[in-house]
Write a protein that binds this DNA or RNA. Structure first.
Length: 426
RNA sequence: GCGAGCGUAGCCAAGUGGUUAAGGCAGUGGUUUGUGGUACCACCAUUCGUGGGUUCGAGUCCCAUCGUUCGCCCCA
């Protein structure tokens, strides 16, 4: 076909479903506001180096999934694959740390990863994320998890599982990595091909392989939890205690590994069984080394990101999209009437009513059919007769009752009109 | 990047080598030229994602290509 289509892995969010997005955005905005989180909006593209340094060159996200190109000034530009790096860059660039204390930030917007699309995964997708910068306290870890749980619960989502783990600090992880490689190397030939590859590149990932045989072998592998130093251990215990205090159910999963290099200590995921293979709705954790790595002061931090497409997939399984009821549908026929209808519609809109004006010029019957489909509570009718007397017929769709009223009178007592409309709504 | 399935109208589809491509929804016009949700009638794909091939003949078989879906890798 010669028509232009949206690129692979991108899609339009049409008016028919945008209500879900608006509901998610407003719930999130409200909950984050109550938590004293402030919104930050950073650019959609950044210097490629930001992600290479921040996320880690060895990760798949950087190694094979980035939308990277040269701009006309020969700079290497990358469409952001996630939100944390940009937020941290901005935090450093504007010395936000110098405001002292702890910064609670949130963001939302499109992210880009060059991958094969499948259920719950697109090349352009959207995340909602939070970052708490400046606190190493376990309460920060617990708080961000509580905020995420709060958002998901407020939206009515069910059957979610929270998995948590600690990947320790850099030293813990280094020691564990070695132990794991030592354990797995003798089994190398029996691992699936992907995992054999990962043995040298990213051995921790082998733990959550979907290959059965690999799982069998990984079952008896050493656990990261046995390699945590005393600080890491205490921190992780505190996080668990606080989650219990908050009444948040969780599952300890020592095999949970996050894909980005910057994570330290707490790692967590919230998953659903109703999403197919891409089960993670929310993923996050602590990243104490990132701010310093990107050239800022040594600053502990913790955060998460929710995949909005996945969240909305779940929402659509559970509930109908909210519809905002229309107050008036205006039908008109004849030159003078049509002009008056426009003016009347506009005055009603300015007075706070929602009004759809039929512009088609088709017969009254057709216009009434559309009025019916629009779901309007009432219909306003203007023909030659009404235009002549400057009146309008007001018809209540449900009862089919209708009466003539002067246009000026209709606009006079808007409070009463509002009351009548509301009393007719289902 | 790899594997499998699928591509017929705006949407859902029937069709498995033989004259003119079912049907439903939506849309448009009419029965009712100023009154809706029902009913009835009419119209709505010279064409089956695209290109090539096999054949007397292809939506139907073959190849390629593009798109899409699900899965792997990976992640939100």
């Amino acid at each position: 076909m010669g028509t232009i289509q949206a690129l692979r892995g991108t899609r339009d969010i049409l008016p028919e479903e945008v209500g879900y997005w608006q509901r998610v955005e407003s719930a999130a905005r409200q909950i984050l506001g109550r938590g004293a989180y402030r919104e930050i909006r950073t650019p959609i593209f950044e210097p490629t180096e930001l992600f290479e340094r921040g996320i880690g060159e060895a990760t798949d996200v950087v190694g094979k999934e980035m939308y990277t190109f040269k701009d006309k000034g020969d700079r290497s530009i990358t469409l952001r694959p996630e939100g944390t790096a940009g937020a941290v860059r901005s935090y450093i660039e504007h010395s936000i740390y110098s405001q002292g204390g702890i910064q609670r930030l949130w963001y939302t917007g499109p992210m880009f990863r060059y991958e094969r699309p499948q259920a719950g995964r697109q090349r352009q997708f959207h995340q909602l994320g939070v970052e708490v910068l400046g606190s190493a306290d376990a309460r920060a870890d617990a708080e961000v998890i509580a905020i995420a749980a709060n958002i998901l619960q407020t939206l009515g989502l069910k059957n979610l599982r929270l998995n948590i783990n600690s990947v320790g600090d850099l030293e813990d992880r280094q020691r564990y990595r070695q132990a794991l490689v030592d354990y797995l190397t003798p089994y190398k030939d029996q691992l699936d091909p992907d995992s054999q590859e990962r043995l040298s590149r990213n051995p921790l990932r082998i733990l959550d392989s979907k290959d059965e045989r690999t799982q069998e072998i990984a079952k008896d592998a050493p656990s990261i939890l046995d390699y945590l130093g005393s600080n890491s251990q205490r921190h992780f215990e505190q996080v668990q205690q606080l989650l219990s205090d908050l009444g948040i159910d969780y599952e300890l999963n020592p095999r949970l590994v996050r894909g980005l290099d910057y994570y330290t200590h707490t790692a967590f995921e919230i998953q659903s069984d109703d999403l197919g293979a891409q089960a993670t709705v929310c993923g996050g954790g602590r990243y104490d080394g990132l701010v310093k790595e990107l050239g800022g002061p040594d600053t502990p931090a913790v955060g998460w990101a929710i995949g909005l497409e996945r969240l909305i997939l779940l929402l659509q399984q559970l509930q109908e999209q909210p519809q905002s009821a229309l107050d008036f549908y205006v039908v008109s026929k004849g030159d003078r009437a049509e002009a008056q209808a426009l003016v009347l519609a506009q005055k009603l809109r300015q007075a706070g009513f929602s009004v759809d004006l039929d512009l088609t010029g088709s017969g009254f019957k057709k216009q009434f059919t559309r009025a019916d489909k629009s779901g309007a509570v009432a219909c306003l009718i203007l023909g030659d007769e009404e235009a002549e007397n400057h009146t309008v017929k007001l018809k209540w769709m449900a009862s089919k009752e209708q009466n003539a009223i002067a246009q000026a009178e209709l606009l006079e007592n808007t409070d009463e009109l509002r009351r009548q409309l509301d009393s007719q709504k289902p």
